[in-house]
Structures are given as structure tokens and as C-alpha cells.
């Protein structure tokens, strides 16, 4: 599904001080895997995840997603890949404050050809599955952190993407709520969803089927225990 080799990324330019954030990263993620990326702060986890999510570009190396070479794709194609193949969950939820839970979940479907009634029923169904059937018309500010993250997860899943990408999805939640979210991820994983998640917490990473460790822009452990 995801195949990265010799990938590098740096900030700044050669003549100023060049900050190399990713060095020669090789990574393969297969369909159905639940991968956790761990490592100290500043080690490049988010940068790598953003590249995997096609939100950021890189300087050298290759990245193949479902057999397509990502750097060669134009912005419309990337948008379409994100629309149908990638779902994002962020540490800070990133819900749109003016919109209700249901409207937030409908958002990704606005960019598809789905009919309004279908968009509405899909959103209601997703939210109900995640236990938010009675919170459809609440604004994000009227929901708890855990509830907001569930809305975000519903939004990430609503177009049924191949890969769920999550950058510290439990980072803003208390331990208990975080564990709840991880039970949810586990269930998704059991149903075959590919998940790539960044986390600081071993307790959270423990839910993954594989843990990758990074340090100073390099992968130091692919987590492929013998």
C-alpha cells in the first residue's frame, strides 16, 4: 500500500542553515497494518506522517501509494487521493467551529458526487456507530474532547478511505478517553482498515500491530520483530 525509500526532507536552504528533518527513510506499510510511529519530540514523526498523507512534499527519494508515484501527481489528483483514500485525525481535532457535528462529518462528502440525502444519512450513520447519535446538531464547542475526536474520526472514515492517518489522536485527551479511542482504532483495524498513527505514549502504541521508532529523522526500529 505504502512504499517509501531513501526519502529525505530538509528545511531552510543550503546557504542558510539547513535543517535535515528526514534522512534516507525507508518504510513499507502493507494493507491492513496498524502502525504506530514513536520517537522523541522533533524526531520527524509528524513530518513523515504528513508526507504519507500527501499534505507535504519532500526533497529526495521515492514514495509509492498503491503503486502510484506520489511526487509525479498534480494537486487535483492528490486532492482526489486524499478524498477517497486517506482519512485524517489530528491531535487538536480540527473540526470546523461553525458547523454542527453532522455538518462536519458531511464535509468530505461535499467534494464527492453524493446526493444530499445520501450525505446526510451517511453522516448520521457514522456518528451513530461512534455513539454520537444524540449529538448530531451540537457544535464542536458543545462537545467534550473525546466526543470531538469521535466526530473527527467519523469525518475521517465517512468516505471509507484505504488508510487512516492519525497524528497523536489521543494527545489532547485524558488517558481513559484515549484508551476508548484506541479501542475504536483496534476495531477498525480488525475490520481491515490500514492505520498509521503517531504517538508519544507506549500505552497507546501498544494497540498497534507494529511500532516504528524514529530518532533524528531516521527510522531506528522498523518494528519488524523476528
Amino acid at each position: 500500500m505504502i512504499s517509501i525509500s531513501k526519502l529525505s526532507k530538509a528545511y531552510g536552504s543550503v546557504d542558510t542553515s539547513l535543517l535535515i528533518v528526514l534522512k534516507n527513510v525507508n518504510l513499507t506499510i502493507n494493507e491492513g497494518e496498524f502502525v504506530a510511529i514513536m520517537g522523541p519530540s522533533g524526531s520527524g514523526k509528524s513530518t513523515l506522517l504528513n508526507i504519507i498523507g500527501m499534505l507535504d512534499n519532500f526533497d529526495a527519494g521515492s514514495y509509492q501509494f498503491k503503486g502510484q508515484s506520489v511526487p509525479s501527481l498534480n494537486s487535483d489528483t492528490l486532492a482526489e487521493l486524499r478524498l477517497y483514500n486517506l482519512g485524517f485525525v489530528f491531535q487538536s481535532f480540527n473540526l470546523i467551529a461553525q458547523l454542527t457535528a453532522q455538518a462536519n462529518v458531511e464535509l468530505p462528502m461535499l467534494y464527492t458526487r453524493l446526493k444530499k440525502t445520501k450525505r446526510q444519512s451517511n453522516a448520521v450513520q457514522r456518528l451513530t456507530e461512534l455513539g454520537l447519535g444524540d449529538r448530531l446538531n451540537h457544535k464542536p464547542s458543545e462537545l467534550s474532547g473525546g466526543q470531538q475526536q469521535r466526530v473527527a474520526i467519523a469525518r475521517a472514515l465517512v468516505n471509507d478511505p484505504a488508510v487512516l492517518i492519525a497524528d497523536e489522536p489521543t494527545g489532547s485527551l485524558d488517558t481513559e478517553t484515549g484508551i476508548d479511542i484506541m479501542h475504536l482504532f483496534q476495531r477498525l483495524h480488525q475490520n481491515g482498515k490500514t492505520i498509521v498513527m503517531v504517538t508519544h505514549e507506549e500505552e497507546i502504541a501498544a494497540f498497534a500491530s507494529r511500532v516504528i521508532r524514529m530518532r533524528d529523522g531516521k527510522i531506528v526500529d522498523q518494528g519488524l520483530a523476528a
Binding site: 482526489e80 480540527n94 469525518r155
Partner: peptide, 10 residues
Amino acid sequence: GVRKAIGARE
């Protein structure tokens, strides 16, 4: 940014 991540085109 969120809309773009979600799949909105330019």
C-alpha cells in the same frame, strides 16, 4: 488546511 486534507481541490 482541514478542507484540503479532507480532499478539497484548489
